[in-house]
Amino acid sequence: MSTAGLALGNGRPVTTALWQVLALPLLALLVWQVWALTLESDTRAPYPIKVLTTFLALTASGDLPSALLQSLGRVIAGFCFALLLGCGLGILMGANRKLRDSLDPIIEGFRPIAPMAILPIAILWFGTGTPAALSIVTYAAFFPLLVNTVHGISHVDPKLVRAATTMGLPRWRIMLRVLLPASLPSVVLGARLAMGVAWTAIIAAELAVGAKSGGGTSGGIGQMMFVFYAYSVDLNAIVVCMIVVGVVAMLIDRIFRAVERRLMPWRP
């Protein structure tokens, strides 16, 4: 089953060469660059060469790396809070039907409220610094972790639990040795989703907090984007930020997949 779609017809696996993957993006960049050459030399419009030189300048000055580190730090810290809260509550809710049923309306009531929607309250309570950004990231990452942990624990094959009871395992050991490992794939999936939304939330939060603080000292890559947008109208720098945000998100996801494989070598 796992090879379905990979092996077609003559049994040769279908592989896509690197040039096939890169051809279209490179062509698009080329067209973009050629188009930019037709513009006046003092144009504000972003184009590939200018984006690249801006990226190098921002990196050399240390502005981009420090903003990136600040955002990353907030994401990781917020993710860890959410991991503790989401998994902790998720395990309790997954294992206890009554608790699950009674907390479900509250959880489902909050879940559709976008992280950005709690920003006004976060700013009023925590100001425009790290705590506000952190609370939004935690809020955003909490739900995927909670929902997937609850789903994982409550959907463990009951036969495995029954098998464990016939081997004389007490309840707490069944939790530790059956429910937790069996729900790990679901929890890790939740963590991956949570990391994704945490990263999108931090950029949006920093943009908004940056706007509120008037481009002050709130920091992070989102605030940096706000400054380039509101003060210098530097579209090239904004594109640099966009690309960096995208690339970092992709790298984080790659790391998660590698962890996933290490953590669960038993998955087909």
Binding site: D157, K159, P181, L184, M264, W266
Partner: peptide, 9 residues
């Protein structure tokens, strides 16, 4: 058990 109930991990 019929489908063995082995722990997949």
């Amino acid at each position: 058990f019929q489908d063995y109930a082995l722990m997949p991990w």
